[in-house]
Structures are given as C-alpha cells and as structure tokens.
C-alpha cells in the first residue's frame, strides 16, 4: 500500500499557483528523492503533503485515506511528520522543552522521548538545559530530526536536512534516514545536493516549474539533472 499518494495535486499561495497538477506515490519503507531547480515547488509540495498549505485541486491520500482539507495538526496525528527547511526546532525553548513538544503526537511519555533521543544523539543529552537556538547547526538539525524518531510516523517528509551542515553530520543524519526507512516509514526527501539524496533513494522524481518532468530510478534520473538545474549547455 502507498503510504503517501498525490493525484493531480494543485496548490499555491493566495492567487499564485505553484503546483500545477502533481502526481506521485511514496510506498511504505521507501525513500523517494524529490529533485529540481530552485523555485520548482519542492518545499511547497512537502507543505501541502503535511497540511500546512491547503490543496486547491486534486487528491492527497495518507495511508489510503483521503485527507484533503485536514490541517497540519490533524495530519501530524494521522502519522505525517515533516521536518521543515532551516530550523525545525523552537529556538527559544530549551532542548528538553523542545522534546516535551514532540510528545504532542504519539503516546510516548516525556522520559521515554528523552531516552530515545539521547540514545541516538548523546550530544543533545549533554545540552538538554540549553536554549535550542544556541546549539550548533548540526545539533539543531539532530534535535529537529529527533521528532521523526519519537512520533513513530508513517510518512516522513524531509526538507533539505543537510543544508549548511558539515559532511560528517550529514552522513550521520542520512544513516538515520536509512534506519527509519528500514523500519517501514515512507520517506520523501528534498535535497539541495542531488547526489546525496540519490545515494540513499530507492527512486527519484524531478519537479520543474510545478510539474513532474521525470520519474525513475536514481541512475535514470541522474542523467537529466544537469539539464534541469543549469540549462541545456552544461
């Protein structure tokens, strides 16, 4: 069964339509890389799939259930977890308070949430009383990713989790992505660095100007990347 399915989806901001009928599926236990040039609508697509932006047309299915019109909090309860671009944390709350917020979904007690997070990212345990905004970029992203670890999502939407991070931390985060996929989670991955994403992906989709222009295995899609990003000459 497809954990996430978009059919002819249209959406945008106010009167400006960004997605002009996008269809794609993400089966359970699969990583799909969503690639494409700036402004193609990748982040918008993730926002629509998590209920932050409403769809104007088409269908959004989560776990086979039609969920058009559900808001972000409701979709979170239904098992969708989006880690937003930039900082997916509350900068003015401490690490421990951030983790407390993650208990809004799922049935883990605060102590269990802390245990799981600090088990995976011991560095966060050392900084539990620190304001999240004062953590290093890598630690902030670990804290953001810890939500996917503790809410037991069915669908995980990752928006540029490697942005601005050192390669060693990126590797650590992607190791976690692989583990989560093995646990059966459906993962849709947006990445600035196409190669990084393709290395862990089972399949890939190129989005260009609000439309899917290519779908295939990572190898198939890779050939067309340069043209999509830098124009014909490269």
């Amino acid at each position: 069964m497809n954990a996430l399915e978009l059919i002819g989806l249209r959406a945008g901001y106010g009167s400006i339509e960004v997605l002009h009928g996008v269809s794609l599926v993400v089966p359970a236990a699969t990583v799909v890389a969503l690639l494409g040039p700036n402004g193609a609508g990748k982040s918008t697509l993730l926002k629509v799939a998590s209920g932050t932006i409403a769809t104007t047309d088409g269908c959004l299915h989560v776990g086979g259930v039609h969920v058009n019109g559900a808001d972000a909090a409701a979709l979170a309860q239904a098992g969708v977890c989006r880690i937003p671009e930039g900082r997916g944390i509350f900068p003015n709350l401490t690490v421990a308070e951030n983790l407390r917020m993650w208990t809004g979904v799922g049935d883990l007690r605060p102590a269990e949430v802390a245990e799981r997070t600090f088990g995976r990212f011991p560095r966060l345990g050392e900084r539990r009383a620190q304001l999240a905004g004062t953590l290093s970029g890598g630690e902030q992203q670990m804290l953001a990713m810890s939500r996917s670890l503790v809410v037991d999502p069915a669908v995980l939407l990752l928006d540029e989790i490697s942005m601005g991070l050192a390669p060693i931390i990126v590797a650590e985060l992607y190791e976690l992505v692989g583990t989560l996929a093995q646990q059966g989670i459906a993962i849709l991955l947006v990445e600035q660095f196409a190669q990084t994403a393709l290395a862990v992906a089972d399949s890939a989709v190129i989005l260009s100007q609000g439309r899917v222009t290519r779908t295939g295995t990572p190898a198939e899609v890779e050939e067309h990347l340069a043209a999509a990003y830098l124009g014909g000459a490269a």
């Binding site: 998590s50 808001d71 972000a72 909090a73 979170a76 309860q77 989006r82 997916g88 993650w102 979904v105």
Partner: peptide
C-alpha cells in the same frame, strides 16, 4: 507552523 507540525493546534 512548527507547533502545528508537532501536533499542537495553534
């Protein structure tokens, strides 16, 4: 926005 993503209705 993040609060909503974490399941809290703003």
């Amino acid at each position: 926005e993040l609060a909503a993503l974490a399941g809290t209705k703003p």
